[in-house]
Design a protein around this nucleic acid. Sequence first.
DNA 1: CTGAACCGTCAGTCTTAACTGACAATACAG
DNA 2: CTGTATTGTCAGTTAAGACTGACGGTTCAG
Lengths: 189, 189
Amino acid sequence: MSDETTRDPHREVEDRFIEVWSDISQLWGVNKSVGRVHALLYLTPDSLDIDSIAERLQISHGNASTSIRDLMAWGVVRRVTKPGDRKTFFEAEKDPWTWFHTTIRERRRREVVPVMERLHEAAGFAEGASKGAKGAEREALEELHGKVEQFADFAHEFVDLIDVFLAVGHGRMAKVFRTAAKLFPKRGG
Amino acid sequence: MSDETTRDPHREVEDRFIEVWSDISQLWGVNKSVGRVHALLYLTPDSLDIDSIAERLQISHGNASTSIRDLMAWGVVRRVTKPGDRKTFFEAEKDPWTWFHTTIRERRRREVVPVMERLHEAAGFAEGASKGAKGAEREALEELHGKVEQFADFAHEFVDLIDVFLAVGHGRMAKVFRTAAKLFPKRGG
DNA sequence: CTGAACCGTCAGTCTTAACTGACAATACAG
DNA sequence: CTGTATTGTCAGTTAAGACTGACGGTTCAG
């Protein structure tokens, strides 16, 4: 009772979860504040306005606003307006699988596609270079080209993997995997 | 001929690939230098020593050494000694799937497992708190606990997914996915 | 139309991560 | 065993990224 902050169980549960989610977000390449705001919105049944978020998480108004903007760009937070209230409220997607699916789709668009284009450019350049050379240099360039292609093939398979995930979608992924695991049981370790 | 640097095709192919791989590494949460060193070792048929790497990539000796240490800790680079030569050489795993597999296993160990433990702790704490409360507070805490559990369940499914990947292993993953995709064709978009 | 409440933006500051270069530790030829 | 070549480490510096807080723009009740 003397120290209310550490004694409110509701708040402590929230804090612990927010911290964990924040760390997961960072592993995923998302910054700390963005992760914390996302976690708070996930836990809160009602939608929240910018200042409430900032106050709750002890961050600046500007930081909260920027974090919300990011989360909306990722498609995991929605803007909500309440009739008769001037404020803008925000709420998070509550189903983790939906959220994850959305995130993967967005990352594919923003990050995977552009980098794959550059990879193919590099492979094309390598092929051109090897065809324009003679003798020993040609051999060396062909070997180099082979390496680039090998990596490009791998990357392409990886993208296929993402595409299957996106096509199958939502909560069915786990089932897909379990089935796949039975079809192709592990051999060694 | 006047500017040898930009005219050596072999070097330019390498540079382009190194740059792309470096960016992919950064998306993956690995720092730029580490990615570049890894890319260089992947492309180079012979093993390389620290100073050659540092000179080729225009980075300091210390940076090259630290990057190599990281790559060895990730299990994607090996130390090699040549008889009659005092230097230590390093070479990279050349098969991308093997490399990827190793990386996933290591990330699971370092990052996923610890964070999952903390998540379960948080869920346990939430459960305890809700059971220790009464009336309206109890209801609120139970709802909160439900949210934490929902996320924990999702996270657990995600870890299962990783485990299947690790069990199936290597180049067979793509085939697994393709089979899975046929079994569970996409419905909407 | 006016003013208050609120949100979005961004220059400047602060914090965190990466890199360098000098020194310590190590390995090995002679 | 000794001297030298080479790798490993880490304190200090530099670069990158995140956060704050003040300002301008927008919205809407009155």
